[in-house]
């Protein structure tokens, strides 16, 4: 299956690519997609996304076909012929 990954904010700048097209096996999961991104963009990139292996930081937001997903085991469904994945980091502090 085809997966288009859009990297927003810091992720796009780190990766130096804002849109990544991936060929994934059928029934690929979000975790599989992240693993593929890790191969492509390296450990520093993945450290921004994963708190520990298998779990994303609470400030990493991932949308699959515009639906928020935080379980890495979620199987991707294609929206037509392509699954669209969007990722953004919301990392910053707050006070008050």
């Amino acid at each position: 299956m085809m997966v288009n990954v859009r990297l927003f904010g810091m992720l796009g700048i780190l990766a130096k690519e804002r849109s990544v097209a991936l060929h994934m096996a059928e029934r690929a999961t979000l975790g599989d997609v992240l693993a593929e991104l890790g191969k492509r963009f390296g450990r520093e990139f993945m450290d921004r996304i994963l708190r520990v292996p298998g779990e994303m930081h609470s400030y990493c937001r991932v949308f699959v076909n515009d639906i928020p997903v935080d379980d890495l085991g979620t199987e991707l469904e294609t929206n037509g012929s392509v699954a669209e994945v969007g990722m953004i980091l919301l990392m910053a502090s707050e006070g008050g």
């Binding site: 927003f8 904010g9 810091m10 992720l11 796009g12 700048i13 953004i88 980091l89 919301l90 990392m91 910053a92 502090s93 707050e94 006070g95 008050g96």
Partner: peptide, 11 residues
């Protein structure tokens, strides 16, 4: 978040 900076603070 859009700009890509982690450096934000309050008050």
């Amino acid at each position: 978040a859009a700009f890509g900076t982690p450096n934000r603070s309050s008050a």
